[in-house]
C-alpha cells in the first residue's frame, strides 16, 4: 500500500467525542467541556484555534489542539502558536504520529505568519521534555509553580519554545 499508515484529519463536530476520549485518557489533566467546544465553535469567523486527529491504520490514536496567541496588550504570553494538547496513545508512541501532529501545528503557524511554538509541560514529564527538545524546543524562562489545577500529575510546569 502506498498510502501512509499515519494520517491526520479535521475534528468534525460528530467526532468531537473521539477527541475528548483521547485527551482524557492520555493526559492527567481534566479539561472543562468548553475547552473542547472551542474546536467546533468557530468564533467570529476568524481562525485562531486548530485541532486535528491522528489515525494509525484508520484508528484514531492521537490528537492536537493549538491556538494563536496575540500580544496586543503586552501580556505574559508572546506572539506565536500555543500548543494546548498534543497527545498520542501509549501503545502507538514511537511511530511518528506525534511528529506528524507537530508538523501540522508548525505549518499552520507559518501560514499565519507566526514563527514560534510554545508549550507547557509538567516539570516531571521527562519523556515529553526530551521529546520536544529533540525536535528543536528549548526551555523558556523558569519553572511555573502550581500551574496545573485539575491534575493527577505534577502541578509545576515549564514552558518550551521553538522558533523558526
Amino acid at each position: 500500500m502506498s498510502r501512509d499508515i499515519v494520517s491526520l484529519d479535521n475534528v468534525y463536530a460528530n467526532r468531537l467525542g473521539t477527541f475528548v476520549k483521547l485527551t482524557n485518557s492520555i493526559l492527567p489533566v481534566q479539561y472543562p467541556d468548553s475547552f473542547f467546544q472551542e474546536i467546533v465553535q468557530n468564533k467570529n469567523g476568524k481562525e485562531t484555534s486548530f485541532a486535528q486527529l491522528a489515525f494509525y491504520s484508520e484508528v484514531a490514536v492521537g490528537a492536537v489542539k493549538a491556538k494563536l496567541i496575540a500580544n496586543k496588550k503586552g501580556g505574559i504570553l508572546p506572539h506565536g502558536m500555543y500548543i494546548e494538547v498534543l497527545a498520542v496513545l501509549e501503545h502507538y508512541s514511537g511511530k511518528g504520529i506525534g511528529t506528524k501532529l507537530l508538523e501540522y501545528v508548525e505549518s499552520e503557524a507559518k501560514k499565519h505568519y507566526q514563527h514560534a511554538l510554545y508549550v507547557h509541560v509538567a516539570s516531571d514529564n521527562v519523556r515529553a521534555i526530551t521529546w520536544y527538545k529533540k525536535r528543536g524546543f528549548e526551555q523558556d524562562g523558569d519553572v511555573l509553580l502550581d500551574y496545573y489545577k485539575n491534575t493527577t500529575g505534577s502541578a509545576n510546569a515549564l514552558v518550551l519554545k521553538k522558533t523558526f
Partner: peptide, 14 residues
C-alpha cells in the same frame, strides 16, 4: 471482561 478492558485501555477510540 478483563480482556476487553485491556483492549479499551490500549485503544479507547475503537
Amino acid at each position: 471482561e478483563s480482556f476487553i478492558n485491556k483492549a479499551i485501555e490500549s485503544t479507547p477510540t475503537l
